[in-house]
Write a protein that binds this DNA or RNA. Structure first.
Length: 334
DNA sequence: TGGCCCTTCTAG
DNA sequence: CTAGAAGGGCCA
C-alpha cells in the first residue's frame, strides 16, 4: 500500500502531472475540512492576511489538543524560547518574531525583516510604494532539518499535517506549503537532470531517489541515524573520516542545472557515499536513548508514517540542532 | 483549494 | 552571483 511513491519515485507524482495530493499512505482524508476551527491566532500581520484561508492560521498553542496521538511530537516542538538561541541564524527579538509570524527560528533577516508596511505598524494597508518588499525567510537549520526529514518520507502533506508541522516549527502553514512545493520542484529538477544515469533500471531509480533525498539534507552538517533498536545515533561531520566524504559539500549550487553538467561527482561519486554508509561505517558519537521507540518514533512519525521508513533512512541534522531537537532524550556521548 | 510551474527578488 | 522563499497564473 505504502508503495505509493515515497520511496519509489522521489517527487514524480504517481502518474500524470497534476494530481491533488498523492501520498495515499499518509494521506488521511480526515476531517480536514479546510476551514478547520483552529484559528485562534489572528495571523501575523506581516503576513498578508490575504489567503490565510483558515489553513494559514496557526494556533498559538504548541500542539493542538485534538492531536493527542502525535502529542509526543512535542518533544520535537521548538519551543520558541529554547530553540531561539540554538540557531546559527540570527536570533530575532521575540517580539518581532511574533509579529512576523515567522518562527523565532527562521530568521527573516533581522535587518530587512519587516515589510515596509508592517514596519509602520499602523499604516499597513496604505502601501506607499508600488510593491511591498518581499521577505525572504531564511529557515533555520533546525527547521530545515525537520522539513527535510519530513520530506524524505513524505512529499505531500495533508492540510492537517502541514498545520501540525507549521505549529511545531513555528512557521506559517503557507510557508510549509511553499517549502514543500519548492522542494518537490527541486527534486523534480534534480531527477530530470540526473535521469539518464538511472534510466536503465528501476532499482537504480530508487537509489537515485535515495540519493536525492539524502543529499537534500546532507548539507545540514551531520547525521542522525536511528537503528533498528530505536536508538538514535548522531555523527557530526567532523567525524567523517571516510574518503568518500571529501567530495564537494552538498551545497545549493548542486541544484543549479549549469553546475550539474560539470560536476564530476555528479555521477557515481556520491552515489557510493550515500549508499555505502551504514551504521557500521560511521562512528556514532552520540546516542539518544530514553524511550527509543516511543518518543522518537512518535515524534518522527508525527502523522503516522511508516516507522520503518525512518529506520532505513538516515536523517541528517546539524550537530547542534540535533542535540537541540532531541534534547528530550538522554544523550550518551560515546 | 492545493498542486504545478514559472518568475520575481532577497539574503547571504 | 546564486539559492531558494515567495508571488502569481493556471488547472482540476
Amino acid at each position: 500500500m505504502d508503495s505509493a511513491y515515497p520511496q519509489g519515485l522521489p517527487c514524480s507524482k504517481p502518474s500524470d502531472s497534476r494530481e491533488p495530493a498523492p501520498e495515499p499512505e499518509t494521506y488521511e482524508p480526515e476531517e480536514n475540512s479546510a476551514s478547520d476551527s483552529r484559528e485562534s491566532s489572528p495571523v501575523p500581520e506581516s503576513y498578508e492576511p490575504e489567503e490565510n484561508s483558515a489553513a494559514d492560521s496557526r494556533e498559538p498553542s504548541p500542539v493542538p489538543e485534538s492531536y493527542e496521538p502525535e502529542e509526543n511530537y512535542a518533544s520535537l516542538q521548538m519551543s520558541s524560547a529554547e530553540t531561539l538561541h540554538t540557531e546559527t541564524v540570527s536570533p530575532l527579538p521575540s517580539s518581532m518574531d511574533l509579529l512576523i509570524q515567522n518562527s523565532p527560528d527562521s530568521s527573516t533577516s533581522p535587518s530587512a525583516t519587516l515589510p515596509a508596511s508592517a514596519e509602520n505598524g499602523a499604516g499597513k494597508e496604505e502601501q506607499p510604494q508600488a510593491k511591498k518588499q518581499k521577505i525572504r525567510t531564511v529557515f533555520s537549520q533546525t527547521q530545515l532539518c525537520v522539513l527535510n526529514e519530513r520530506f524524505q518520507r513524505q512529499k505531500y502533506l495533508s492540510l492537517q499535517q502541514m498545520q501540525e508541522l507549521s505549529s511545531i516549527l513555528n512557521l506559517s502553514y503557507k510557508q510549509i506549503k511553499t517549502w514543500f512545493q519548492n522542494q518537490r520542484m527541486k527534486c523534480k529538477r534534480w531527477q530530470k537532470y540526473n535521469w539518464p544515469k538511472y534510466s536503465h533500471s528501476m532499482t537504480q531509480m530508487n537509489s537515485a531517489t535515495t540519493e536525492y533525498l539524502g543529499l537534500s539534507s546532507c548539507h545540514q552538517g551531520c547525521l542522525v541515524n536511528m537503528n533498528a533498536s530505536g536508538n538514535l545515533s548522531l555523527w557530526s561531520n567532523h567525524s567523517w573520516t571516510s574518503p568518500s566524504w571529501n567530495y564537494p559539500a552538498w551545497n545549493s549550487q548542486t541544484w543549479c542545472p549549469q553546475s550539474w553538467n560539470n560536476q564530476a561527482w555528479n555521477n557515481q561519486a556520491w552515489n557510493n557515499q550515500f549508499c555505502g554508509y551504514g551504521e557500521e561505517s560511521l562512528q556514532p558519537q552520540i546516542q539518544f536513548q530514553q524511550n527509543p521507540v516511543s518518543d522518537l518514533e512518535a515524534s518522527l512519525e508525527m502523522a503516522g508514517e511508516a516507522y520503518d521508513a525512518i529506520l532505513q533512512a538516515p536523517i541528517y541534522y546539524g550537530a547542534q540542532q540535533s542535540a537541540d531537537l532531541f534534547s528530550d532524550f538522554s544523550m550518551n556521548i560515546v
